[in-house]
């Protein structure tokens, strides 16, 4: 019991020190306009068996109030000259029901990304970086039950595409950055970029479909002890 109290005090102290130098950038993304209708995935029998309902594309995942999920929000400017340690913990990408989970995620340059196959069918892991991104294209087989495959990427790239050509509807996007300050909006459209050092930044929000060119919407954010709040309203043109 006493031990636990001590730990709580230490945790509170550490937290206080953190707050003095860093805060979270939080916010919400709302979408205005009529999204294009989603399409049913053309699953083959082997993949169809893995679903009880017919899955659809996940381009516009919207809440009742237009809250937009799967938006990649990150610090675009304000960190130049700073370097950040590569997180020891890797990120994970799963293939389940012939779909990638998560559909949109983030990763730091050189951070490990483990891709596993939880399906009873084979997939090919086709990393398809953009031309001139500096990341390497690769295509590898991943049989049923084989162990996870690890990747690291040398260059920042929003978005780096993973796809499976056996099942052409399977794809995922990874935002690769040189720093750890990114977040992906959830179904409620909110995001939280944690522990951002105090300072002035440009925050960019980019979504695969609303910003097909890859150029998102930017806002300035000043992070103080209380963090910062940035909301975006994305309007369809």
């Amino acid at each position: 019991m006493k031990m636990k109290q001590h730990m709580l005090i230490v945790a509170a102290l550490v937290g206080a020190v953190q707050i003095a130098t860093a805060g979270d950038i939080t916010g919400k993304i709302t979408f205005k306009g009529a999204p294009a209708p989603e399409q049913e995935l053309p699953l083959d029998p082997g993949c169809g068996k893995l679903h009880s309902t017919k899955p659809k594309t996940r381009f516009y995942v919207l809440g009742a109030g237009g809250e937009l999920a799967d938006v990649f929000v990150y610090i675009k400017d304000g960190l130049t000259g700073k370097t950040f340690e590569v997180p020891a913990a890797g990120a994970e990408l799963d293939q389940r029901g012939c779909e990638y989970l998560p559909y949109v995620s983030g990763l730091q340059v050189k951070q490990k990304l483990s891709v596993k196959n939880s399906d009873p069918v084979l997939h090919n892991l086709h990393v398809s970086p953009g031309a001139g991104s500096g990341n390497k294209e690769s295509n590898k087989a991943q049989m049923t039950g084989s162990k996870a495959m690890d990747y690291t990427f040398d260059s920042p790239e929003v978005f780096l595409k993973f796809k499976c050509d056996v099942h052409p509807w399977m794809f995922a996007y990874v935002g690769v950055l040189e720093h750890p300050f990114y977040a992906v909006t959830g179904k409620d459209g909110t995001f939280a970029i944690k522990n951002v050092p105090a300072g002035k930044y440009t925050v960019e929000a980019v979504h695969r479909k609303t910003h097909p060119s890859g150029k998102g919407e930017s806002k300035e954010a000043t992070v103080g002890a209380a963090g910062a709040k940035v909301d975006f309203v994305i309007e369809k043109k």
Partner: peptide
């Protein structure tokens, strides 16, 4: 923005 296809 309007183009949706399962093959993305």
């Amino acid at each position: 923005q309007q183009r949706v296809d399962s093959r993305d």
